[in-house]
């Protein structure tokens, strides 16, 4: 058995849907897990709230806690005006969080381990900020590039840095999530692979020696659980901070 830590990221087309230009559009394993995540979120948020109980049960508690968590994150970073974007941020957070958590289950696929997915989400945020900022504030929106209280002689430099960092936002936003998920899953696979490799190559001694990488795999899985949630939270809170620029330009 050859252990390839990259194999888990393969995109396997399940069936072809159609063709756009030169590109064939296939329903892939990635698509499957995207829709699975959407289904799980819908089940949680709609099925969990079906009881509409005054004293919530477990599933309803999870749904309400997710709601309150995202709502308070928005209120604390973008103010109450940011609640306009509540559905968007909630969708982003839940989509990333649930797909990451599903991805930790062995033999599953992690949607956000592909740069194209995270980049698409990051650009969605970037253009939302840009378009809403221009629509709401007009040219005042460009005040985000001109911090107040900066001496005039270093203003050009500061403006250059601000503009550069603004346009690099989608890159850092997407690469952070992508790299975290990719690296975590590779590390997990490598350590889990050691267990099997030691057992196959060294026999009984190898199985005893495999305890150490096994323990590490368990620890890494726990860490990945944290990272799966944390990266979703980081993605959501950065979205809030970027939207705050669009809502209140000028530092």
């Amino acid at each position: 058995m050859k252990i390839d830590p990259i194999h888990q990221f393969n995109i396997e087309p399940l069936f072809t849907i159609g063709q756009i230009g030169k590109h064939t559009i296939a329903f892939t394993n990635s698509s499957l897990y995207m829709f699975l995540s959407v289904a799980v979120i819908s089940l949680l948020m709609i099925g969990g709230m079906a009881g509409r109980q005054l004293v919530p049960g477990r599933l309803q508690s999870i749904a309400e806690i997710s709601y309150e968590f995202v709502a308070s994150t928005i209120r604390s970073t973008a103010g109450s005006e940011g609640m306009k974007f509540f559905p968007l941020i909630f969708s982003l957070f839940m989509f990333i969080c649930i797909s990451n958590l599903i991805g930790i289950i062995p033999y599953t696929f992690t949607v956000s381990s592909h740069i194209i997915v995270t980049a698409a989400l990051a650009f969605l945020v970037f253009f939302t900020v840009l378009i809403y900022g221009l629509y709401k504030n007009g040219f005042k929106f460009f005040k985000i590039f001109v911090p107040s209280g900066v001496p005039i002689y270093i203003l050009p430099l500061v403006m250059f840095i601000e503009i550069l960092s603004f346009f690099l936002r989608p890159v850092s936003h997407s690469v952070r999530l992508f790299a975290n998920m990719l690296a975590g899953h590779i590390a997990l696979k490598v350590f889990a692979g050691f267990v099997a490799m030691l057992g196959v190559s060294l026999g009984a001694l190898g199985w005893v020696g495999g305890v150490l990488p096994l323990a590490l795999t368990v620890a890494l899985t726990a860490l990945e659980l944290l990272v799966a949630f944390l990266q979703a939270y980081v993605f959501a809170i950065l979205t809030c901070i970027y939207l705050n620029d669009a809502i209140h330009p000028g530092h």
Partner: peptide
Amino acid sequence: SQLVSLVIAFVALYVIVSRFAL
């Protein structure tokens, strides 16, 4: 393929979340 799936899935999620869930 991924982009098309993502757009469909995310739009579906957005509609479900904004219309029904929240």
